[in-house]
Design a binder for these strands. Structure first.
Length: 423
RNA sequence: GGAGAGGUGGCCGAGCGGUCUAAGGCGCACGCCUGGAAAGCGUGUAUGCGUCGAAAGCGCAUCAUGGGUUCGAAUCCCAUUCUCUCCGCCA
């Protein structure tokens, strides 16, 4: 959620910047400014009324104590009148606030000046590419066939027991999953991240805090009886740790790494993009989250970017990094790097990580603040990224590392798998 | 799941209809004292919104959350939620 002051101070700038995101903000911005004016106007009148009522109540108490009850009775009438007035104003105020909030929530985050203009993924800017030569024979199999061949992932069994998109991992497949999770966590710890193991369900407040609600309501599984939401990413519970928190300057930057299962309904997705491991309802992911001083958030973003790149290098995978254009960047992000890994058999790039700086957009909604050099409270900046999500990494490993003898496990994760070949 | 007790400032803890502008303590900051420190003494010590060019000041709200009673609520009533104790169930 954008800060009201950002909008009020320079509405024209907000409107222009949001055009990069292909968002027409003019009407909304005007509404917001007007609603804010009404809100302040109403509050002023109400506060004055309450101030008078408070004063009256004190006088009445004083009069009663001194046996001047008849004088007090007269004042009571005025007091009752004030109460009625302020209550009505209070209701108006609540409504105005709610309306204002509903509008504010509709404005996307402002893009960083470095975000390229554009409408679709075609316009994303290639910033780095590391193509490892892969000499695959024409007979290269896609990962879903390899999974079946070596009996390591069973999609049909998942469909029987739960439904499509909930596969079983078996034998070396299960062990590979566990190894990757451990590898990613250990790398994160080495890079200075503190490990967190979060709950997999969150309450409504948390789902609002990171912006999943009201935006992506239908994308989360909902446990009606207890009003919990299953997490679509560890970002949700981990970032919400800091909801309504004021950090000390010395606490920054906060660096957390968390493994969790992730659950996504992916309503509306179908076709070849969802084949095999490409899109699942339940998957595993290691997520990194940082909370930084506003002055440092872009150097933190670069640090996170090179960290994720280092993981892909250790996994010996061909990858490229894209800076998302205005049309492709998410609602909440100011600047996002997408990491894509080449899938040899599918002959296309698969998104495996997304590293973003949200600046103060999330922290404003969550009231995540820190005390600056002068003891003033300010909103912190939040950043996160996948490091990494398993399914597509597994898909890429299977496809790129296939040989006549089997799937070759990259050196870096052999200490975790305990084997170097899937055959 | 049942019964009971509770949730007060950064922390501990008193208050149980008006004097709460929340006692007292701890912590923290600054000052005095000291050769330096400790102790001691003094001062200060939340968040949000509004008023405002900015600050100071002032107003309003906040004693788990949301309602209610009352001229007046930390204090009384109702609901929700969390914590603790006991019982039951249980990986």
């Amino acid at each position: 959620m954008l800060q009201l002051n950002t909008i009020k101070n320079d509405p024209e700038r907000v409107i222009q910047l949001l055009k990069i995101k292909n968002f027409e903000a003019e009407a909304l911005v005007a509404d917001i400014i007007e609603l804010d004016r009404r809100r302040r106007e109403t509050q002023k009148i109400m506060d004055d009324g309450l101030a008078e009522a408070n004063k009256l109540a004190k006088e009445i108490g004083f009069l009663f104590k001194n046996g001047r009850g008849d004088e007090a009775t007269a004042l009571k009438e005025r007091s009752a009148e004030l109460k009625k007035e302020t209550q009505a104003l209070g209701n108006t105020l609540d409504e105005t606030r709610k309306e204002l909030d509903e509008k504010l929530v509709l404005l996307p985050n402002l893009p960083h000046p470095g975000v390229p203009a554009g409408n679709s993924e075609e316009d994303n800017e290639l910033v780095e590419s590391r193509d490892i030569e892969i000499a695959l024979e024409q007979t290269a199999l896609p990962h879903w066939e390899l999974a079946e061949k070596y009996d390591i992932i069973d999609f049909e069994l998942g469909s029987k027991v739960t439904g499509a998109g909930f596969p079983f991992y078996k034998g070396k497949g299960a062990r590979l999953q566990r190894a990757l999770i451990n590898f990613f966590l250990e790398e994160g710890i080495k890079a200075g991240y503190a490990e967190i193991q979060p709950p997999l369900f969150v309450n409504e407040d948390s789902a609002y805090g990171t912006g999943q609600l009201p935006d992506k309501d239908g994308q989360m599984y909902h446990i009606g009886e207890d009003n919990f939401y299953t997490i679509p990413t560890a970002e949700v519970p981990v970032t919400n740790i800091y909801r309504d928190v004021i950090l000390d300057l010395a606490d920054l930057p906060v660096k957390n790494v968390a493994y969790s299962s992730c659950f996504r309904r992916e309503a509306g997705s179908y076709g070849k993009d969802v084949r095999g491991l490409n899109r699942l309802h339940q998957f595993d992911k290691v997520e990194i989250v940082q909370i930084s001083h506003p002055d440092n958030s872009y150097s933190v973003l670069e640090e996170m970017r090179s960290y994720v790149a280092s993981l892909l290098e250790k996994l010996e995978l061909p990858y490229r990094i894209l800076k998302l254009c205005g049309g492709d960047i998410s609602f909440t992000s100011a600047l996002t790097y997408d990491f894509e890994v080449y899938s040899a058999a599918q002959k296309r790039w698969l998104e495996v990580s997304s590293v973003s700086n949200f600046e103060a957009f999330q922290s404003n909604r969550m009231k995540l603040r820190f005390r600056d050099e002068n003891g003033k409270t300010r909103l912190a900046h939040t950043l996160n990224g996948s490091a990494l999500a398993l399914p597509r990494i597994v898909a890429a490993l299977l496809e790129n590392k296939q040989t006549d003898d089997g799937i070759v496990i990259p050196e870096a994760i052999r200490p975790f798998t305990g084997f170097d070949l899937i055959n």
